[in-house]
């Protein structure tokens, strides 16, 4: 957890070493927030389009405006936390890049995740409909051949209860898991 939280800080320290003294949390917080911002914007737009919902997402301009605020935080910190203008410039550019990257990742990931979830739900529903239409589902059920010539199919209920129906429409019951049947 700490490794992820301080990833940006450790990266900066490995590049510039003693030349830089930034806050450990602010950079990570801004990047993660930019990701959330992207996810909120794109995810909301995606659901609005897909389901005709009306999630009150911020406009693209508002999101970009917020993004500039986040970049502003990092630009200030870059200048305050470093001694040389060169390091400050490179750090500001790097952080701006990372904040924008976080925003883009948020957009892409939210849309991809929502797409995968909707795709899975759609495929699942389609398969269920197909199963019912083609009667494929019956093949999974156990079948028993009785001595009186009737063939019995086992159906499972919602709560694990079992019903046994013969080909002629008769129902049976069993107490020993299918070895002997008695007609109801």
């Amino acid at each position: 957890m700490k490794k992820i939280l301080f990833a940006i800080y450790n990266l900066e320290k490995s590049i510039w070493g003693e030349e830089i003294n930034p806050n450990k949390y602010l950079a990570t917080a801004t990047i993660l927030f930019a990701t959330c911002l992207g996810a909120y914007l794109a995810g909301g737009e995606y659901l609005n389009d897909l389901l005709n919902w009306h999630i009150n997402t911020p406009t693209l301009t508002a999101s970009l405006s917020m993004l500039t605020v986040l970049i502003g935080y990092n630009v200030t910190e870059s200048i305050i936390a470093t001694e040389s203008p060169k390091v400050a410039t490179w750090r500001a550019l790097m952080m701006s890049g990372l904040v924008i990257a976080g925003f883009v990742v948020g957009i892409v990931v939210s849309v991809v995740i929502l797409f995968i979830i909707t795709a899975i739900i759609t495929i699942f529903l389609l398969l269920t409909v197909l199963k019912v239409m083609l009667g494929v589902g019956d093949s999974d059920n156990r079948k028993f051949k009785l001595d009186n010539g009737d063939e019995v199919t086992e159906y499972s209920g919602l709560f694990g209860d079992k019903t046994y129906v013969g080909t002629l429409g008769k129902t049976y019951s069993t107490d020993d898991g299918g070895k002997t049947f008695s007609e109801d």
Binding site: F33, L37, P58, A62, M66, V69, L70
Partner: peptide
């Protein structure tokens, strides 16, 4: 368009 700028996300950032 400006209505949304001090919107919900900005106040969440304010909390953080």
């Amino acid at each position: 368009l400006f209505e949304y700028i001090p919107g919900r996300m900005a106040s969440i950032w304010g909390v953080i």
